[in-house]
Nucleic acid binder design. Structure first.
Length: 505
RNA sequence: GCAGCUGUAGCUCAGCUUGGUUAGAGCGCCUGACUGUGGAUCAGGAGGUCGUUGGUUCGAGUCCAACCAGCUGUACCA
């Protein structure tokens, strides 16, 4: 007898279903972040998940085909559409389209799903949530400093203690200046500069030696895979290493060695010979740092770090990155480092792509999904299991209307409640169901109770505790642990007492 | 994309080295003991194209090849 071919139920890789606990955790996080952003005077705006591909700037050069990394499709008029891969490019489109109606500088925030068609990995999904804040129309370093402060405040509002995160600040012009000074400026070296930036970005993972290999002839990893290097000569590598990679950042503060912006800046100042572009970047960094210090944000929250790269393509000046410093173990006992959970920077070119005038902008983005994974793992989120509704059981199937009425009474009193909708034949199954729903209690009314105008209320939470002491099934059933009778008219009141006893009111 | 590892019940896995009747375990699920009560216990039951295709062989879950999928690392990452 051949079985009919069943369709295999399967989730596409890199995508995730989310249950009640995760949804609740996300809601909690989003609300916390929103409060901070509102406090800073930002207002919400939402754009759709789909944009014209050219608005996202993701056509491959010299081809009329979008980048493979974005999910794209053609409209019936042949125009390419794409799912957004971040929230910044759509905002730039929105601002350009509504430029006349916005009060500039325009501060806005929004959160939503973004999509990337890339190989997924641990903690990396093809659909994930970001929460962005942007200030459009201000070139002031105060706008940048504010982003950094807001990032720090947000981390603390989410329950991450000071010292377990850090907001790192850098300026792209520093790196550009250094690269110019070693002779790889100009259009013809654009590709090479990318390789250099990528190499520096890997400092935390590969260390100084690995980065130097990538700056030079290339690097072969443990699996035998070879990565081509930037082919710089020794003196070029030496300049980068001395200016950025080996830059001292540790200072003695009150007898302890700590990383400080002061130390980083002092060292950068000694490198002013690297050229005007480098010096521009340094001046901007100094300006931001002065504002941070004046506002009381010291190096334990926001810190200058010349090795931060981020967003190779569109950042033009200051860049920021939020890093979680805490370490923990995963289910299998392996150490987990969370690393970057957010970042941003100044993107002065992004809005002006649509406009005839320059429009400075700076923004910051939190990776909600990744941060949620981190917070869950360290137990800051989703620790408690959601309590289910009160379940009204069906004893006498002729009287479903009576039971439904009890449910309605509980609901009218703002108590989560539901009628058992399954097959009422086996009463035990109804309790099993209530147990699996994590119901705090069930309401029972059989013929005996009905005659006396009573109902039975069974406290499942208390009952589960009592169960541990009972070994035999007879005893279990006869004692009816944590169960009591009350007048039908007292139903709401008594249920409320049970909920209060467990802190659920 | 490149490399390594892994595909056996709903889940976690054993069996593969050394090919040999009916492919196992734990957990979960269903039924009953228990026609008015969750848990525990006991008894029973359902559930498998051994990732796919081809090859070697009298005989393949086991050996070989290709492919597919997953995981891990690496590359890319706006």
């Amino acid at each position: 007898m051949a079985k009919p071919q069943k369709l295999k139920a399967r989730l596409p890789r890199g995508l995730a279903d989310r249950g009640p606990a995760e949804i609740a955790a996300t809601r909690e996080m989003v609300e916390a972040i929103r409060q901070v952003y509102e406090l800073y005077g930002f207002e919400p705006v939402e754009t759709p998940a789909i944009e014209y591909t050219d608005a996202l700037g993701k056509f491959l050069p010299d081809q009329d085909r979008p980048n493979e990394g974005v999910f794209s499709f053609q409209d019936d008029d042949e125009q390419w559409l794409s799912l957004r891969y971040d929230l910044t490019a759509p905002l730039a489109r929105y601002v350009a389209e509504n430029f006349q109606n916005l009060a500039l500088p325009y501060r806005s925030y929004r959160y939503g799903w973004v999509f990337r068609n890339e190989k997924p990995g641990p903690g990396r999904f093809r659909q994930f949530m970001q929460f962005d804040a942007d200030t459009v129309g201000s070139a002031s370093p105060a706008a940048d400093a504010e982003m950094c402060m807001m990032a720090a405040d947000t981390m603390e509002r989410l329950g991450i203690p000071r010292g377990q995160y850090v907001v790192k600040v850098n300026n792209r012009k520093l790196l550009d200046g250094i690269m110019e000074s070693i002779g790889i400026g100009g259009e013809e070296n654009a590709g090479r500069r990318l390789t250099v930036l990528r190499a520096i970005d890997k400092l935390d993972r590969l260390g100084v030696v690995g980065v130097c290999q990538l700056l030079g002839s290339g690097r072969k990893d443990e699996s035998g895979d070879f990565t081509e290097g930037a082919e710089l000569n020794e003196s070029q590598i030496d300049t980068i290493v001395r200016a950025i990679i080996n830059a001292p950042t540790v200072d003695a503060v009150e007898g302890r060695a700590v990383e400080t912006s002061d130390r980083a800046l002092r060292y950068l100042r000694a490198n002013r010979h690297l050229g005007p572009r480098f010096n521009d970047g340094l001046d901007e960094l100094e300006a931001i740092n002065d504002l941070l210090v004046a506002a009381g944000y010291a190096s334990d929250r926001v810190r200058i770090d010349a090795a931060v790269v981020r967003g190779l393509e569109y950042y033009t000046g200051p860049v920021y990155e939020v890093e979680l410093l805490l370490e923990t173990k995963d289910e299998k006992g392996r150490p987990v480092r969370f690393g970057s959970v957010g970042g941003g920077g100044r993107y002065d070119g992004l809005v002006s792509r649509f406009m005839g005038q320059p429009v400075p902008a700076t923004g910051f983005s939190i990776g909600v999904s990744r941060l949620q994974a981190a917070l869950t793992l360290i137990g800051k989120l989703g620790a408690k299991k959601e309590t289910g509704p009160v379940v009204v059981t069906v004893f006498d199937r002729e009287r479903i209307a009576d039971y439904q009425q009890m449910v309605a009474k509980l609901r009218a009193a703002n108590i989560r409640a539901e009628l058992y909708l399954g097959n009422p034949k086996n009463f035990g199954n109804q309790l099993k169901y209530a147990d699996r729903r994590n119901a705090p209690c069930v309401v029972i009314q059989g013929g005996d109770e009905k005659e006396k105008g009573e109902v039975q209320i069974k406290d499942l939470i208390e009952g589960a505790k009592a169960a541990a002491a009972i070994a035999s099934n007879e005893e279990w059933r006869e004692t009816r642990p944590a169960q009591f009778a009350c007048k039908e008219s007292e139903l709401v009141e008594k249920v409320r007492e049970v909920l209060a006893r467990h802190g659920l009111d």
